[in-house]
Design a protein around this nucleic acid. Structure first.
Lengths: 335, 335
DNA sequence: CTGTTAGCGCTTTCAA
DNA sequence: TTGAAAGCGCTAACAG
């Protein structure tokens, strides 16, 4: 591990002052071409690279970075969020740092804390926990309300979408509603960890409320295509009277469509399938997936709004800011 | 835009010296509990957050960051790469910064340069261009050889996979081979920009070589499901004798499967479909997609190996390091 | 055009 | 246990 080459070494090598090296490195015009070349040669010879920390420390116009904790890279919904965040961040001149959600949210936040100015994440625990983990790092909680001070949030209005979809499905003849719920909803509620296990997800509660009576059948699966396929099969088997199924998310819904397709089950004739998320991937299957689309772009935009507000306050602790984005229904072919 | 709260302000507020604030912030034991509490209260009151730049500048053990320029968030192949990179980076204690590829690679690199220690990216231009754009920033070029000094690379051996797949397809009765190629291959070759346009992709050249005779038909489309579907349809229409089709990538292949499915075309009976990438998503369609799987995990791992080597040399310009990863064939149902 | 002087905000010695 | 000094590597502001 050689000693780091600094601006000082380059200056010595080129026989100029450090300031002149800076001028050459930053393409400024107040330097003689010959000197510039000489310095650049020295840079090349020594393999010098300015320290990003030192540079950012001293530069007036700081580079801001948003840390995004991505819940899962296996679900296009989350990578879609990442994509939108990236776009929104780039538009505002922010950098995006990503980290994968692990069991240990605290550790992840600890890592990001030294690199990011603001962190956005999905988090299942309580706001208090989150606030504690963040330890002063400004946090934007995604897809959940936050009541605690110090934790901003961008919530999602899924319920209105579910209500609307149920109404329209009824109009189309739906009578017996079933649902495939997530085995471990990210929007877990109240105490996780301590032996609690998971109750029905908020989506399921919204759905039951919208239907207005107990669901004709519910099964549970992991948030994957394969698990969605399996759980959908179980649902049809255990509750053959179900004619309409809400899948917890589009990934699982894709599995449901695949299941129906491979068994020759008519969709939406025999059973209607509705997903949640509005993935573009829903266009790829046959029949195309009807889905409650969440406005991910607005979510990203709001997140960046909050980040900029926080930045404007120089990252001091602010009163929590809350935003809310809506959902719309993508009527395609499966329902 | 209030003035930034610094360690100095906290020290004044708590009536201690700056070092003592440091001690309190970093949970060190050489500080009296009462003092610690008092400092922490001041921190809370002022909403103080240490500057990540200043901290990293002075700290012995630096945080390293890999900058990843993601070619496209719309293709799960690339998000899959991002996921693997994230995992590989986390395992080694590196942070991952992401940026989206834009038209202006130079600008993207410029942004990342101030935040990342090493950059990994797919790049279609020449190594010389890349080297110039990077301006000293260590670069790992993905999925392409690099001959230029200063640009490391992790290449992909797709050709052996294509050769193997053609051999097996022939054994299964394939006679007339067609291909849907990319309209603008990322692995563009030679001069882009200056009116050059794009020739056949390397994948196509490998395929032709493996087949050993001119392809029975080739159509072209963008790298999306919809375009893949369309181009596949055109191929069947223009060259009805084609019985086996290699799709440029899995995303396009998904479109092909969808096209066949919706027209009632028997796959693989009437036509065999093979994709490239090995996406898990290939399991979601019916029939499941056969694909040449690229070892993305190995690619990520090699990239991090190189990054660590570069870091060990304190980011001095190193002789270029080259790695190569292989491919394997996922025989599923579509071929 | 180039060099000198000051810091950026933090952590590390080292004394007290 | 605390404080004082001395930088980390760089750039802004001023000289010259």
């Amino acid at each position: 591990m050689a000693k780091r080459v600094t601006i000082h070494d380059v200056a010595a090598e080129a026989g100029v002052s450090r300031q002149t090296v800076t001028r050459a490195m930053n393409d400024r015009d107040d330097i003689k071409e010959a000197t510039r070349l000489r310095v650049l040669e020295a840079v090349e010879r020594l393999g010098y690279r300015p320290s990003r920390f030192a540079r950012n420390l001293v530069t007036r116009r700081k580079q801001h970075a948003l840390g995004l904790v991505v819940a899962s890279f296996d679900n296009p919904y989350y990578t879609g969020i990442a994509a939108e965040m990236l776009t929104a961040a780039a538009e505002r001149g922010w950098q995006l740092m990503m980290a994968a959600a692990q069991d240990d949210t605290e550790a992840v936040l600890g890592m990001l804390a030294s690199q990011a100015d603001v962190v956005a994440l999905h988090f299942g625990g309580s706001g208090a926990e989150l606030s504690e983990f963040a330890g002063g790092l400004p946090v934007v909680r995604l897809e959940a309300e936050s009541l605690l001070p110090g934790v901003h949030s961008v919530a999602l209005d899924i319920e209105s979408g579910i209500v609307a979809v149920v109404a329209e499905l009824r109009a189309r003849g739906a009578r017996r509603f079933g649902m495939v719920d997530s085995a471990h909803s990210l929007q877990a509620h109240g105490a996780r960890g301590a032996g609690g296990g998971y109750g029905p997800s908020p989506k399921r509660r919204y759905f039951e409320r919208a239907v207005g009576e107990p669901l004709a059948g519910v099964t549970i699966g992991d948030e994957s295509i394969a698990a969605g396929s399996r759980a959908f099969g179980e649902l049809l088997e255990q509750h053959p009277d179900v004619d309409t199924v809400l899948m917890f998310n589009d990934l699982m819904a894709l599995g449901a469509v695949r299941y129906a397709q491979s068994r020759g089950i008519d969709v939406p004739g025999r059973v209607r399938i509705v997903g949640i998320d509005g993935l573009a991937l829903g266009e790829a299957v046959h029949p195309r997936l009807t889905s409650i689309a969440l406005d991910v772009r607005a979510m990203a935009s709001h997140t960046m709004d909050i980040a900029e507000l926080v930045a404007k306050a120089d990252f001091a602790r602010l009163d929590p800011i809350h935003r809310r984005v809506g959902s719309s229904i993508l009527w395609r072919e499966s329902a």
